[in-house]
Computed example of a mutant assay.
Amino acid sequence: MPPAKKRARSYDPAKTRAAVLAQLGNVREAVRGLTPGQLALPTRLGDWTVRDLVAHIGMAVTAVHRAAARPAPPRQDAQVVQWPFATAASADAISDFTRNLAADHPDLDAYLTDVDRSLRALLAEHSGGRLLETSAGAMPLDDYLVTRTVELVVHTDDLNAAVEGLGVPYDRQALAAATRLLADALALKAPGASTEVRVPPYAVVQCVEGPRHTRGTPPNVVETDPLTWIRLATGRTAWKDALAGAKVSASGERADIGELLPVMT
């Protein structure tokens, strides 16, 4: 008998919308207090400064606006779990767009305030089922908003890493959605059921080809916390460094998933 097809994860649309707005609000509050010197600090994203990074966070949210401004596609042809694999192709264009955006918006607080206002207006105007053409293909607005939690959480972490003591908080629902989407993407990239990846309290997925377990503790287990998982999945932390720093535990001969990471680049 062939293995049962895994059911796609569903996300609560109201919680996703609230999470995106909450995490954007967390970033806005932190950016409001940044000094010119802090905005000029380097980040771990190549030659981007903190100013560039903040501009990019706003740009990641207004990707919803740009997609909604185009005609709706005739049918859905992509699932939200495919999105992490579609981001690398546009990296150069995004970098150029970000620098121009940072130069055009010297008042970042005002910029993010306008992004928040316009997003709320857009969400009030469009139903969650409205199809959008995205980098991964056509998907509903509510699904695309799940990808925005990844953008917001990942870049909040980048911001915290760049500015010592900043401590921008992570909205719980945004962190949960980002963790789950990136875990599901790993399972899609390496289908199977020989290894269980646990990211408590938000996600558990099975992946990697090989013998599947049917009861009890699986023979191959990877476990880590949400932020470490997100850093691994996006290339912010190397697998070997996470192991050496005891940020991740891996037991079993198929628990070394380093070659599968990052999931999203």
Rank of each mutant, 00 (worst) to 15 (best):
P3L: 02
A4D: 13
A14M: 07
K15H: 12
R17K: 05
A19K: 02
A22V: 05
V27D: 10
A30I: 02
V31I: 06
T35N: 01
G37E: 15
Q38F: 12
A40W: 01
L41V: 00
P42C: 04
P42V: 00
T43L: 03
R44M: 06
R44I: 11
R44F: 10
R44D: 09
A55V: 07
G58T: 02
A60E: 15
A60K: 10
V61K: 15
A69M: 03
R75W: 02
Q76V: 12
V81Q: 03
W83I: 00
W83A: 14
I94S: 14
D96Q: 12
D96R: 13
D96T: 02
T98D: 12
T98F: 15
R99M: 13
R99E: 14
R99D: 06
N100G: 15
L101S: 15
D104W: 14
H105L: 00
A110Q: 10
Y111A: 09
V115W: 01
D116G: 10
R117V: 01
L122V: 14
G128Q: 11
R130M: 08
T134H: 13
T134M: 02
A136F: 09
G137C: 09
A138K: 07
P140L: 03
D143W: 06
T147V: 15
D158N: 09
L159Y: 11
A161M: 12
E164N: 08
Y170N: 05
Q173E: 10
Q173F: 05
L181C: 06
L182A: 03
A185C: 04
L186F: 03
A193K: 08
T195H: 04
E196P: 10
P200G: 10
V205P: 07
C207H: 02
G210P: 08
H213K: 12
R215H: 09
P219Y: 01
E223N: 09
D225N: 12
L227M: 08
W229F: 07
L232C: 04
L232F: 00
L232T: 00
T234A: 11
T234E: 03
G235T: 05
R236D: 07
R236L: 02
R236K: 11
A238W: 04
W239N: 09
K240G: 03
A242W: 01
K247V: 00
S249D: 12
S249W: 08
A250V: 12
S251A: 04
I257V: 06
E259I: 07
L261V: 01
